[in-house]
Amino acid sequence: MIQITIISGKGGTGKTSLTASLVALSNNTVIADCDVDASNLHLLLNPEISETIEFKGLKLAVIDQLKCINCGLCMEKCRFDAIKDYVVNSNSCEGCGLCVYICPVKAIDFIDRVCGYAYISDTDFGPMVHARLNPGMENSGKLVTLVRQKATEIAENNNKNLVLIDGPPGIGCPVIASLASINAAIIVVEPTLSGIHDLERAISLTNHFNIIPLVCINKYDINNANTDAIRSLCLEKDINILGLIPFDNKVTKAMVEAKSVIKYDPNSPASIEIKKIWSKLNDIFNI
């Protein structure tokens, strides 16, 4: 089983559109959407949810007002300033349990909190695992791990040979979780100055984890000089460039229709290039 994660320093570089198109080209794939706090892939793949899994993150302290003697010790000790007027603010509570421990009358309960949901779904292109983190919750990478765990389970049980992972933005914990023990990462970059900067950060992250980086330049023709700069950067670091996708307004049109560009117009310039990318991937990984 091959696992490939598609990442980009920032969101909005066309990462999800590319993922959806690759999914549409493949036929033996499990799809994992690991962009759990701003997931979009489901908007293009129309999954039908068959199973919902509660995701419990860190715990939450809750003060029982009947037992509380208003001593104020918890408010004084909480490092996260999460307790005001003997009430825990669930947005600020990090679930450390200090107040539960120190409360002299044991008035504080430590409860599990549901921080989001993971879903197992069917799509026209194969099984998909996705998730939604409740807004404002800590995204620890744990939900990402849960999504990936379910996806590999499904792949193993159904003899699927590829798990395609739509990665989260950034370089923090969720991205790290989406990169653990995969075969390669496709980094999607736009030829802008900040895009190049993000690319460098993403490459150092993949190096850090000993993962093969593959680069895709999206909308490469909006700035040829920067595209050349990315090319020489990759050459210098010995990184394979999978493809150069041209600017193509069909991509947005496809999105409005809730389709991948491959399905919307298989012969549009972007689609043609994405097909090339797919066949290159096939050559590299023998999918």
Binding site: G11, A38, N91, L133, G136, M137, E138, N139, P169, G170
Partner: peptide
């Protein structure tokens, strides 16, 4: 920051 998790809050 991007996203809707705690850094945004």
């Amino acid at each position: 920051p991007p996203g809707t998790a705690c850094p945004l809050a």
